[in-house]
Design a protein around this nucleic acid. Structure first.
Length: 883
RNA sequence: GGGAGUAUAGCUCAGGUGGGAGAGCGCCUGCUUGACGUGCAGAAGGUCACAGGUUCGAGUCCUGUUACUCCCACCA
């Protein structure tokens, strides 16, 4: 895939082609390989409801970085992709589409026709999502792509349902469940969100039968009084003790209700008297059971009043509320109306207020499943990163309620329960029964409902690998290693995968859970369709390239924290890619095909040893950070190394040799430049796979692919502590001289002489490396001197030396004085700090010896420099006096 | 009612084991140096929210306060 690199970094010209190339070479495919360790990530399957948003991009980039890193480290790295049928969400979308295009609502179409359209939807959106993932650069093994409703996943779902049923952990029961009147289905506890709403507290008069007295009931939902079957007070409430056992008359309806006493009633809330509506409130339901109260269900599935509501029949719940209030008012039963803010449960999909509703549903008994899931975390077998989410996980499991899994929907896994129409027997099994096992009848009907979409998601880490079959994939790749997802989905998904994995496979489905935050817009708001503030990843890729988007998402934030999306940061990442592009272009242009650019340690110069040393350190740190899932820190270190050390220092220094005459030294410089660049490409590849592969392909003599190149290791041959320290000193000298030029406003065209007076070590260093000073600090000649020069000079003080620049008539002692004065202040501060510390008896007694010595050395250094500065300031002051 | 997070430069955020406060963007000053102006060089800019505590030493650990954000929760 070699071609000449254009002078501008233009990701559009190669990203697509590079991805295509990887696909052709099958670099993403992973298969059981006894010679390698497996490393597995299953992709949290995106919903087929639409396209990928920035949150997906973040989730995917993290996983791709980890997968690519592990692949390069020699693991058989499998990233298994797929999509989720998203039962309720997709059903709503497809119904909307049908409504829009054909004008038909759900009750006007047949289940089979609906399913056909839903599968067409899946085909369209599933493909679109895959395309988007490819644009992002996701190195998924596409041959293993799965869908939560493909036949394998269906088998797994059925198998698990049957397993749990036979163990008695799935049961059918008549309970008060959460009902969404708009979606027309049951919801689990997790699917109900709580929103604070401004409501009203209605105080209503419930007359005592055959008496002038009455009880005042406070309620936020007066319409539910149509279903009242009692009034409750606290057993020890003296205010109401005499009414217990009596009967009240339900206003407007006239039904007689018993006054009962129950501990549940809180005397301090409202009036202390509570109307009981067992069919429409979870607490009232429990109280109703305790007192054997009648249950009157006044709503139909649309939350419209049914025939039990008498004259209110046919009214929607809110219309009914208005009517009831009006009637109460008119009849004199309404005593008071107060504003009242309270939490209302709403559907997580459509935000309609949920209605507690009594119905027959399927449930999973959670207590036995929650226990091992809790223990796995406590024993440290499951690790959540960052660990502050441990509490979220534990708290949920410790307070878990049974999971309502049946949904009155069409799109999803149909429940494998069969009802005999002859004798009513219920049969739960993997294949439809031909005859009833009890009466032998042949009129069997399958349950109409489907399963909660999260039921199949919970099996994802093993259903995708072939479970319940004992496949080679499952044996090799399961359990998986890391699960990467957002904190918003811990309850829905992570926890359910953990207990399902433990229950069905006997193993944790993964060892690490890496939690990331939400992507927010530049103002910190959640990106959402309704706000219209979403940023489309594809558009960003179009303008800046996938690498820039990836780098932006992977940096500048730490695990678990939300990320604000700012285009300026994408731009900065793009600029970084451009920087790398140009640095590579610069080097590669000097290389010849077929040349050998290896070098011997003896041929290395100071700067070479320094950059190799720094590279070695960077490799070590980046590897460690990636192992700890600190992607942002790792990427930051690569960025700094590439831009500051490699480009701004090393390449500039290397030009001395590259533009020089000495062929041997030129070759060594090229060798080191190349050596460092290849490792840079490797380190950066997980973050910016496209540009690094593209550059890699342009290196003469390279016939391998970067994506499968070996990750750089630490190298003892690259440890040059001493040289790194010298280089550091040299760099300080260069910076001081540049500072002089800038502060004294000396034109870059003026090439100054440099006189060096100081200790032997520094003089030798600066003498030996005079070329570097010449090239980087605008020096034309370095002269080692023994005493103060007579000519007009400005001075830089570095450790162990004075550097004098004779600037002819450009020396401005006023400016020089200010500059030195600033230095003087700084050094005075340093000396003061070091002295203060060393005169602290506590510090001397308790601090580590090495630290004390270090501090002493610093003090000596700064005192010496301060002395130099002071002397020099004296001289400058005299000069000013003279003029 | 519980729980969590955040508070560091003008803005957005990093700051592994406690030991001289960092980056990107922005701002200011120079720069047509043959990889790159998507660049180079140099500067300015911080009471690390507040108050206590532990420690020789705290942005970092502990306690409390304030502000904002989020999650959980069946007080009508």
């Amino acid at each position: 895939m070699k071609k000449t690199m254009g002078s501008k970094y233009d990701p559009k010209t190669f990203e697509q082609a590079v991805y295509q190339y990887w696909m052709e070479k099958k670099h993403f495919s992973a298969n059981p390989n006894p010679d390698k360790e497996p490393f597995t990530i299953v992709l949290p399957p995106p919903n087929i409801t639409g396209q990928l948003h920035m949150g997906h991009a973040l989730d995917h980039v993290i996983q791709d970085v980890l997968i690519r890193y592990k692949r390069m480290r020699g693991y058989e790295a499998l990233w298994l992709p797929g999509t989720d049928h998203a039962s309720i969400a997709t059903e709503v979308k497809v119904l909307e589409k049908i409504k829009r295009e054909e004008g038909l609502s759900k009750d006007m179409i047949r289940r089979e026709d609906f399913l056909e359209k839903a599968w067409a939807w899946k085909a369209e959106y599933g493909d679109r999502i895959v395309e988007q993932m490819m644009k992002l650069g996701n190195s998924c093994d596409w041959d293993k792509e799965r869908f939560t409703m493909d036949s394998g996943c269906n088998d797994a779902v059925t198998k698990v349902f049957v397993n749990l049923y036979r163990k008695g952990l799935i049961y059918r029961g008549n309970r008060l469940i959460n009902w969404c009147p708009d979606c027309g289905t049951t919801l689990s506890e997790a699917e109900v969100e709580h929103e604070d709403q401004q409501g009203k507290f209605y105080h209503v008069k419930y007359p005592i039968k055959d008496s002038e007295e009455f009880l005042t009931i406070a309620t936020t939902r007066p319409e539910t009084m149509l279903g009242d079957t009692a009034v409750a007070v606290h057993p020890e409430d003296e205010r109401y003790a005499r009414f217990v056992g009596k009967t009240v008359m339900l206003p407007l309806v006239g039904r007689e209700l018993p006054v009962i006493a129950d501990d549940y009633v809180d005397r301090s809330v409202g009036t202390g008297a509570l109307k009981i509506t067992p069919a429409h409130d979870p607490n009232d339901f429990l109280i109703g059971q305790r007192h054997d109260l009648e249950i009157i269900d006044i709503f139909d599935e649309k939350a419209t009043i049914n025939e039990k509501g008498g004259s209110y029949e046919g009214l929607d719940r809110y219309a009914c509320r208005r009517q009831i209030v009006e009637d109460l008012q008119r009849e004199g039963f309404l005593l008071e109306v107060k504003n009242h803010e309270h939490a209302v449960g709403v559907c997580y999909r459509c935000h309609t207020a949920i209605e507690p509703r009594l119905s027959d549903q399927w449930f999973v008994e959670m207590a036995p499943l929650a226990k091992p899931a809790l223990e796995a975390l406590k024993k440290g077998e499951l690790k959540i990163v960052p660990d502050r989410f441990d509490k979220v996980y534990s708290h949920w499991l410790e307070n878990i309620r049974d999971w309502t899994i049946s949904r009155q929907l069409w799109w999803g896994h149909r429940i494998p329960a069969y009802y005999c129409q002859d004798c009513g027997e219920i049969m739960v099994q993997e294949t439809p029964p031909a005859t009833c096992s009890k009466c032998g009848g042949t009129h069997m009907l399958q349950d109409e409902d489907v399963l909660d979409t999260w039921f199949s998601s919970a099996l994802w880490p093993f259903s995708t690998l072939g479970w319940p079959e004992d496949t080679a994939l499952l044996k090799y790749f399961y359990p998986t290693n890391v699960l990467v997802t957002g904190y918003d989905i811990i309850f829905f998904w992570v926890i359910r995968m953990v207990f399902s994995g433990l229950e069905q496979t006997g193993e944790l489905p993964f060892e690490h859970v890496l939690i990331h935050g939400l992507v927010r817009d530049a103002e910190g708001r959640k990106m959402s369709k309704s706000l219209g503030n979403g940023v489309d990843p594809l558009e960003v890729i179009e303008s800046y390239g996938a690498d820039a988007l990836r780098f932006m998402l992977a940096t500048g934030n730490s695990p678990g924290n939300d990320l604000k999306f700012q285009m300026e940061r994408v731009e900065a990442a793009r600029n970084f890619a451009n920087k790398l592009w140009n640095a590579s272009r610069f080097l590669l242009a000097t290389l010849e095909e077929g040349e050998d650019y290896s070098f011997k340690t003896t041929e290395l110069e100071l700067a070479d040893k320094w950059i190799l040393h720094r590279l070695n350190e960077t490799v070590k740190e980046v590897s460690r950070d990636l192992d700890r899932f600190e992607l942002g820190i790792a990427a930051g270190k690569i960025y700094e190394f590439v831009w500051d050390e490699y480009c701004d220092w090393y390449i500039e220094i290397s030009k001395i040799r590259l533009y020089g005459e000495d062929e041997q030294r030129k070759a060594v410089a090229k060798g080191v430049l190349l050596e460092v660049l290849t490792d840079i490409l490797k380190l950066l590849h997980p973050f910016m796979p496209f540009i690094t592969e593209e550059i890699w392909g342009n290196i003469p003599g390279v016939d391998s692919d970067l994506i499968v190149a070996a990750w750089p290791g630490e190298n003892q041959d690259r440890v040059f502590e001493e040289e790194a320290r010298s280089m550091d000193r040299l760099m300080k000298a260069v910076r001081s001289l540049r500072n002089i030029r800038a502060e004294m406003e000396v034109s870059p065209k003026v090439r100054a002489r440099l006189l060096v007076e100081g200790d032997a070590g520094v003089r030798q260093l600066l003498g030996d490396e005079e070329k570097i000073l010449m090239a980087l600090a605008g020096i034309k000649e370095v002269v080692l001197i023994q005493e103060e020069p007579a000519e007009e000079v400005v001075t830089a003080i570095i450790e162990g030396a004075r550097l004098y620049m004779p600037l002819d008539d450009l020396v401005d002692y006023g400016r020089e004085h200010n500059r030195l004065e600033k230095e003087f202040q700084k050094l005075t501060g340093e000396v003061k700090r070091a002295r203060g510390r060393l005169s602290n008896q506590g510090f001397l007694a308790k601090a580590p010896e090495a630290l004390i010595q270090e501090e002493e050395a610093k003090l000596a250094k700064y005192e010496a420099m301060l002395k130099e500065i002071t002397e020099r300031l004296e001289v400058v002051r005299e000069k000013i006096q003279e003029s």
